[in-house]
């Protein structure tokens, strides 16, 4: 589904990714861990097409298409979703309107008829249950005045509504209490399907107790330093990241 080969990228002239390789197949959940500044969020942003990051070398294909050649909205329309680490707020636009605009933009690109507000409300009701919210969140402006945890839940609501082929969760667990964490994990697990994949970027092993990854990668200094099974996450939790670094140099 997603194939990243020798990816190099810079931001403000500084090289952050230095030859990253990653392959994700349909049906899989990959976790990406690593110390601060190793390039985890950069990778997530580059996959979504943030204009601040410049890819200097390498190739990324998504379902056979050259991802780097696609505009951000084309990537979204192709089924790539990013749950932002810091979701922005949009004044004066209700959550319901925003969600429907997203769904309809994607439907339109696929040649499907747009959903009217009433049809869409039915869809929404269902999804709200998944994250344990009531209607009141629908009429509030997008993320405006939301707490940190509410913003993260809102990202997951969007993911549930948009049903992406590939979801990238950028530190969605940070700042969440245990109940919220479980809710988020349940929503992600609900989306698990043979035709979908998820990349979970996280600092903590804790989330991976609830979202069991197929593969765990450790990102150090802009490269995948080590990949392994879910036990690798436990090992990292116990030993930290320092012991990984030498191997990275060898690799």
């Amino acid at each position: 589904m997603l194939q990243i080969t020798n990816l190099h990228a810079t931001a403000d002239g500084r090289e952050i990714l230095k030859g990253l390789d990653l392959s994700v197949s349909a049906g899989e959940v990959h976790a990406i861990m690593g110390p601060n500044g190793s390039g985890k969020s950069t990778l997530a942003q580059i996959l979504a097409g943030h204009p601040v990051y410049i890819v200097t070398e390498g190739l990324v294909t998504f379902e056979g298409r050259d991802l780097l050649d696609m505009e951000p909205e084309e990537r979204a329309q192709a089924g790539l979703f990013l749950a932002f680490q810091y979701p922005v707020s949009i004044r004066g636009i209700t959550n319901a309107y925003f969600l429907r605009a997203g769904v309809n933009a994607i439907r339109k690109s696929q040649g499907l008829p747009e959903l009217d507000p009433l049809d869409f409300l039915d869809v929404l009701q269902e999804k709200l249950k998944v994250i344990g919210w009531d209607d009141s969140f629908l009429n509030r402006p997008v993320n405006d005045g939301f707490s940190g945890g509410e913003k993260k839940r809102n990202e997951i609501l969007q993911m549930a509504v948009l049903e992406p082929r590939l979801a990238v969760l950028d530190e969605t667990d940070s700042g969440l209490d245990i109940d919220a964490l479980k809710t988020v994990a349940a929503a992600v697990n609900k989306l698990r399907a043979p035709e979908r994949a998820t990349i979970v970027v996280t600092h903590y092993q804790r989330l991976l107790n609830y979202i069991i990854p197929d593969v765990v990668h450790v990102l150090v200094d802009g490269r995948i330093a080590r990949s392994g099974s879910k036990e690798l996450a436990l090992e990292l939790e116990a030993r930290g990241y320092d012991w990984i670094k030498p191997e990275a140099d060898v690799a």
Partner: peptide
């Protein structure tokens, strides 16, 4: 730029994204 990028990541065209942010501002 972050607002526009956020909306585009949800599938909206850049011009529709600008339009939405401005409409919200003028509501």
């Amino acid at each position: 730029e972050d607002q526009i990028f956020y909306l585009r990541q949800r599938g909206l065209k850049a011009e529709d994204a600008v339009s939405m942010v401005v409409a919200g501002f003028c509501k």
